[in-house]
């Protein structure tokens, strides 16, 4: 019992335990929000808000609306929850960028990832996991496309980053 408790706090959990817990929480999010968990819709609102500040977007999203959006707190919660999980196990540290090539790959990857997620209406969470969980055909097609994209990405990674 004590050993189990130690593993629960210190980790790592077996992958299947993580899957079960995430599945339960995913269903709870649906119950609370009346719509599934998603990440990039909220990121998009923040980025349009920021673009308006810079004068790049004409429409204005009031910051009060963003601060009262459920998605903001889900996203913030994921960051804080991971921070807490690392602190609880005494495993938190700032992990600086050690090689310049990973900085480029992060920026370019982020750009591709954000663009792709928004034209396909969802990321791995909103489009793939919850698209499939919603029994939508689009979710399955998106999953197939993501798998092919990952295959191309893996070739790029082998060529430039290893």
């Amino acid at each position: 019992m004590k050993e189990n408790w130690r593993t629960a706090v210190h980790g790592p959990w077996p992958y299947w335990v993580g899957a079960m817990v995430l599945g339960g929480l995913n269903i709870l999010v649906l119950l609370v929000r009346k719509r599934p968990w998603g990440v990039t819709t909220n990121l998009q609102d923040w980025s349009v808000w920021f673009a308006h500040l810079l004068g790049l977007a004409s429409e204005r999203i009031p910051v009060s609306q963003l601060l009262l959006a459920e998605g903001t707190y889900l996203n913030l919660g994921v960051v804080l929850g991971a921070l807490w999980a690392a602190l609880a196990a005494s495993q938190w540290r700032f992990r600086p960028l050690r090689q310049r090539k990973f900085g480029f790959s992060a920026l370019i990857g982020g750009l591709f990832l954000g663009y792709g997620a928004r034209i396909a209406y969802g990321c791995n969470v909103g489009g793939l996991l919850n698209g499939i969980a919603s029994s939508s055909l689009t979710g399955w097609v998106f999953a197939l496309a993501v798998f092919l994209g990952t295959w191309i990405g893996a070739k790029i990674l082998l060529k430039f980053l290893v």
């Binding site: 992990r95 600086p96 960028l97 050690r98 090689q99 990973f102 990674l157 082998l158 980053l161 290893v162």
Partner: peptide, 10 residues
Amino acid sequence: WGEMCPIPII
């Protein structure tokens, strides 16, 4: 050091 998955495994 500083390498992301899965480069260390490769």
